[in-house]
Computed example of a mutant assay.
Amino acid sequence: MPIEIRELVIKATITDDAAAGGSGAGTSGSGDNNNVSPGEEMIKDTLDKTMDAIKDRNER
């Protein structure tokens, strides 16, 4: 018998640490746009994927 999940709760905590951003952790990334923080890049990627999923669902 299949199980249907009707609700999915996702909780995320984002912190902005000035000390961590200045070290080597923030140097990896796309490299072509240095003024975008890694957090903003992750949000943009997630938003793009979400919008693509909504478009695909509406096309069906």
Rank of each mutant, 00 (worst) to 15 (best):
V9I: 13
V9N: 14
V9M: 10
K11I: 06
K11F: 06
K11W: 01
A12H: 03
A12Y: 01
I14Y: 01
T15L: 13
T15C: 10
D16P: 00
D17T: 07
D17G: 04
A18V: 08
A18H: 06
A19K: 09
A19H: 03
A19W: 05
A20T: 09
A20M: 08
A20F: 00
A20L: 11
G21A: 15
G21L: 12
G21D: 10
G22E: 06
G22H: 01
G22D: 04
S23Y: 02
S23C: 05
S23L: 04
S23V: 05
S23F: 03
G24V: 11
G24N: 12
A25T: 08
G26E: 05
G26M: 01
G26W: 02
T27A: 09
T27D: 08
S28Y: 13
S28V: 14
S28Q: 14
S28R: 15
G29C: 00
G29N: 06
S30V: 01
S30D: 12
S30N: 10
S30I: 05
G31S: 04
G31F: 02
G31V: 04
D32V: 02
D32S: 10
D32C: 03
D32E: 10
N33W: 00
N33R: 04
N34P: 13
N34D: 15
N34E: 14
V36A: 10
S37R: 11
S37L: 12
S37E: 10
S37P: 06
P38D: 00
P38A: 05
P38W: 03
P38T: 01
P38H: 02
G39A: 02
G39Y: 01
E40T: 09
E41C: 11
E41V: 13
E41Q: 15
M42A: 15
M42P: 02
I43T: 00
I43F: 02
I43E: 01
I43N: 04
K44V: 06
D45S: 14
D45N: 11
D45Q: 13
T46S: 10
T46L: 14
K49S: 09
K49E: 06
T50I: 10
M51L: 12
M51I: 09
D52N: 12
D52M: 09
A53Q: 08
A53P: 03
A53I: 07
A53S: 13
